[in-house]
Computed example of a mutant assay.
Amino acid sequence: MQEVHIDLGARSYAIHIGSGLLARLGNYLKEFRFTPRVLLVTNPVVGSLYGEAATAALENAGFEVLRAEIPEGEEYKSLVTAEKLYDLAYTRELDRRSPVVALGGGVVGDLAGFVAATYLRGVPFVQVPTTLLAQVDSSVGGKVAVNHPRGKNIIGAFYQPRLVLADLDVLKTLDPREVRAGLAEVIKYGVIADGDFFAWLEENLERLLALEAGPLARAVAASCRIKARVVQEDETEQGRRAILNFGHTLGHALEALTGYTTYRHGEAVAIGMAAAARLAAALGMLPESSAARLVNLIRRAGLPVDMPPELPTGDLLASMRRDKKVLAGRLTFVLPVEIGRVEIVRDVPEEAVERVLRLCRNQG
């Protein structure tokens, strides 16, 4: 097992990475002296695979489990779903020391974390991520949120978990598309902060796609360490933490305009990263060879790099103007200047963005 620590003073916590950790979930929670009633949030798919194991692990440690299953899909990460969880928590008398445990991917983690952050002004929160994307990204760093029809994650908070338990064994039941979506975020970390890690990904991509245990553990731990460093420097995204949004400006716009049903989050981010690399190259910030290197790795991972032609450029621009990084209406992008380093660029010329958006259609 590997551990990655996030040092945030009183809000510090550990990320445990390894095999067989789900069976020890109850023992981990006992160390925190929570009250015995636990709200376990999952979805039907994850619940059918791991709900009983998680429940047994908690009950064997003396906890009473209130299990809530939310429908699968980004469209259910909403205030309507959150209200149902509030109702359950209230009627079953959860108190301020009753933990909310998220067993699932990014949707479950974001929603359960939002509920934990806001119910009784904050109750303990534990992440048990079951997708690669959640293990390397959404479960770490304390961003919790629900979506609004006009934008993704615009209603939320910074609320750190007490513990993250990343059991690599659960990734074996992921469908290949979900594995590829998770690799988009892994690739992101190499681009924004570690050129050597990016080169290692180029050499080991096929082993990661095959979920080989050794490379998988290394990729998850390396991704978490990079994110930990960034979060420790800028917990509430006042500056440097925005680099974690590389690829997300366009990615979130694509998700919103397609109703959160066409793309997995990692797929939308992959298109956004390819577009950001092309934009950086067009602005003279990034060598064309480096942009091609990134686009090539995304393609090798089986991820999309282009958009469908039917999405109007004007709608994409309008959606990107509502991105959380936008200040005073100025388009803001995280752009690579080399593999391993990015910059936050404000007031990017719209005509340059429009040219790249046209380029990102039907390129194969």
Rank of each mutant, 00 (worst) to 15 (best):
A270R: 01
Q238N: 13
L49P: 00
I187F: 08
L8Q: 12
F63Y: 15
G9F: 11
E255Y: 08
Q127A: 08
P287E: 11
V305Y: 08
L183T: 04
G214N: 11
Q2Y: 12
L335W: 08
T258S: 14
V115Y: 04
V146P: 01
D306A: 15
E267R: 04
I6C: 12
E203P: 00
L254T: 03
G47Y: 00
L66K: 04
L168R: 13
F158S: 11
I226M: 13
M273S: 02
T42N: 01
T118Q: 10
G182E: 09
R177A: 14
L257Q: 07
A256M: 14
A291F: 07
R322L: 14
A157Y: 04
K143L: 12
T236F: 11
G51D: 00
V4N: 14
Y86N: 02
A184D: 03
V337G: 09
G272A: 03
L58F: 05
V136Q: 13
V170S: 04
G314S: 12
A10R: 13
K188C: 06
M307Y: 02
W200S: 04
L209W: 02
S139Y: 05
E343M: 09
A181N: 08
M1N: 09
L174D: 07
F32Y: 15
L357E: 11
V191Y: 05
D87G: 02
T262L: 14
T236H: 13
A134L: 11
E338C: 10
P309Q: 09
G151D: 05
L49N: 00
E310Y: 13
A277Q: 03
P308R: 15
A276F: 00
V295Y: 02
G73Y: 08
V295C: 14
Y28C: 04
N204P: 02
T236E: 15
T173D: 11
A292T: 06
L132A: 08
